[in-house]
């Protein structure tokens, strides 16, 4: 699960007042820190990016071969924590340990690549140059990843609800407007969209037909018919079985990868009431847009 804990901004300082790091050491330190989830800025004699207004609450750690004369760094933003560490003579391992110790106070919330339980940033990215706001993705996604903003524009609202390695919504998007940058192949990975991709998407299964016609009309009709019956027959088990049947259909269609379906905790999916509410809201929104 993603969180709001940010790792240190590391500055590898090689400007005035510091000695340049040997290439191999610079390379190792930079690579290791990146692979642990840190951002690293290298500043040379020429100067680097203007860091005079670093982000509010993210601490900055300046590493450099200061040879015993660590500079005192102050910030106009008094709430920003800026630390300097003299790394003269330290090997990469010791430098990493030093950085890790510095961040120990940040708790265990940091999302580090390769660590057990790390949240892989897998989520849909919408290309608004292509998106027509058709809401197919919102209708399709079972996990409440999508929503609309105050102007009724589709947006990704709960990106950490997205099921890792599932690009299904991208496959049903008729405009090829949904990307998963970490997907293996194009155009889902963000590669330019060819006309053939668009044509292929248009031939793909329409989610509404996959789920049996106009799902919202069906839901409304079924809801009206079943109101009295539901009060007697209200059964989470039946609802769950219906959901399972729906998922089996999806599995057979090949839209959602089998391994993703296999990992699903069906009990954690939105309840029938939640789906009904979402459908009603969506139908209302569509009606407003059409009027």
């Amino acid at each position: 699960m993603k969180n709001d804990t940010y790792p240190y901004q590391i500055i590898l300082f090689e400007g005035n007042g510091a000695t340049s790091l040997a290439t191999e050491r610079r390379r190792e330190v930079t690579r290791t820190l990146l692979d642990k989830g840190y951002s690293v800025t290298r500043v040379t004699e020429d100067g680097g990016r203007n860091l005079s207004n670093p982000s509010g609450d993210i601490p900055v750690l300046i590493l450099g071969d200061f040879e015993g004369n660590s500079p005192e760094v102050t910030s106009r933003e008094t709430r920003i924590e800026i630390d300097t560490e003299d790394i003269t003579g330290l090997d990469t391992e010791t430098i990493i340990t030093l950085v890790e110790q510095k961040r120990a106070g940040d708790g265990e919330g940091l999302n580090s690549p390769g660590e057990q339980g790390a949240w892989k940033p897998w989520f849909p990215v919408i290309d608004y140059d292509r998106c027509t706001n058709c809401m197919q993705c919102l209708s399709f996604c079972l996990f409440d990843v999508y929503g609309v903003d105050e102007e009724k524009q589709i947006q990704v609202q709960n990106n950490d609800n997205c099921k890792t390695n599932c690009p299904a919504c991208s496959r049903v998007c008729p405009e090829v407007a949904i990307m998963f940058p970490k997907y293996s192949s194009g155009p889902i990975n963000g590669a330019e969209v060819a006309e053939t991709d668009v044509a292929r998407e248009k031939m793909k299964v329409d989610i509404t037909s996959l789920l049996g016609g106009d799902i919202y009309a069906s839901l409304r009709t079924r809801s009206e018919k079943a109101k009295s019956r539901f009060s007697k027959e209200r059964s989470p088990d039946k609802a769950l079985n219906e959901r399972k049947r729906c998922l089996t259909k999806l599995q057979q269609s090949g839209i959602i990868p089998a391994e993703v379906l296999a990992e699903l905790d069906l009990e954690s999916l939105p309840s029938p009431d939640e789906i009904q509410r979402k459908a009603t809201e969506f139908a209302k929104m569509q009606a407003e847009a059409d009027s």
Binding site: N3, D4, S39, T41, R42, V43, G48
Partner: peptide, 16 residues
């Protein structure tokens, strides 16, 4: 000899 910025993962930064 260039100065440069590196980030661990733009997707992760964007998500958060």
């Amino acid at each position: 000899g260039e100065s440069f910025d590196t980030v661990s993962d733009l997707c992760e930064m964007s998500a958060r």
